[in-house]
Design a binder for these strands. Structure first.
Lengths: 156, 156
DNA sequence: AATTTAATTGATAATGATTATCAATATCAA
DNA sequence: TTGATATTGATAATCATTATCAATTAAATT
């Protein structure tokens, strides 16, 4: 039996599965624990590695399948970068952070803005939605990349 | 010569290419016009079809390559759905709309919130960024899906 | 506890989207 | 016009994800 310090999330996942007529299994529990044990933006491959530290026999397909369910249960969300494989991040009991992305150098700054959070709540309410999560990415040029671009820009 | 009612966007793209040491070509112009002529969330395949209405000899790879450049130039952005192929939407001289997504039934509502737009501007400023665009998706359950889920939920 | 039913698993093949390769061609600066 | 270099479309290759399937496992029922 795996020691579990995230009983809350486990319960959420279990009850989600039950509601869907699905079963809580050992592989699913392993993938959940592996995901919960790591912060940040995790690819399915990252989660596969982490899962195999717990149980070396976990298959890749199981990780794909289980992460879809975990996301559906509201415990993970797609971090949604433009390129590369899908990246998951924690979505439960984690402060919502958003991303400020420099398309010049690729740098990503994470930030949290209570005003935006509040405005989002208002939108959910206005449309009669139950809030589950959100994802926001601001795209721009950081100070350095802006400066660099100005040098090469022709005058209008 | 293709008639072009979007001289502004064409100029932006041309100067972007020049800055990068790249060339404005007929295929690139065709893809840009095809993209600009259609609103909504367009897959690369959609854009390929539209491009071939203008010039039947356009290759698929050219559409992929050109759309990447158009996005880099700030004229398109990834609409960023969770599944399926990448979808582009217009990002220049179009009111920024954001997405409210029901993860129950999949419905997507587009909305515009000036408060959020303003808060985003503030973030760009705070971090010294030049704003280019943004993408935001709120995820939740619509009224109907919420109601349906309540019925099947066990009491806590 | 044994049985039954249906979901789940991991391995593999298959798919779908995107990217790399390459010889022929087109663009642009000089 | 010419020459250097970027671009093209077709094709093959790659990458991420999904479908398939026989063997296994979980949970409901006896």
């Amino acid at each position: 039996m795996i020691i579990n310090i995230n009983m809350n999330e486990r319960e959420i996942f279990t009850s989600f599965l039950k509601r869907k007529g699905l079963k809580m299994t050992q592989p699913r529990e392993t993938v959940l624990q592996a995901f919960l044990a790591h912060e940040g933006h995790l690819t399915t491959e990252d989660i596969l590695h982490a899962s195999r530290m717990i149980d070396a026999s976990i298959g890749q397909a199981t990780v794909f399948r289980t992460m879809k369910l975990i996301a559906e249960a509201g415990l993970a969300r797609d971090a949604c970068q433009d390129d590369g494989p899908r990246k998951y991040e924690h979505a439960y009991l984690h402060s919502h952070h958003d991303h400020l992305h420099c398309i010049g150098c690729g740098k990503v700054i994470e930030f949290f803005d209570p005003d935006i959070e509040q405005a989002q709540e208002a939108i959910f309410k206005q449309y009669g939605f139950t809030a589950i999560g959100h994802r926001m990415e601001l795209q721009g040029l950081c100070a350095e990349c802006s400066a660099q671009q100005d040098k090469t820009r022709t005058q209008p």
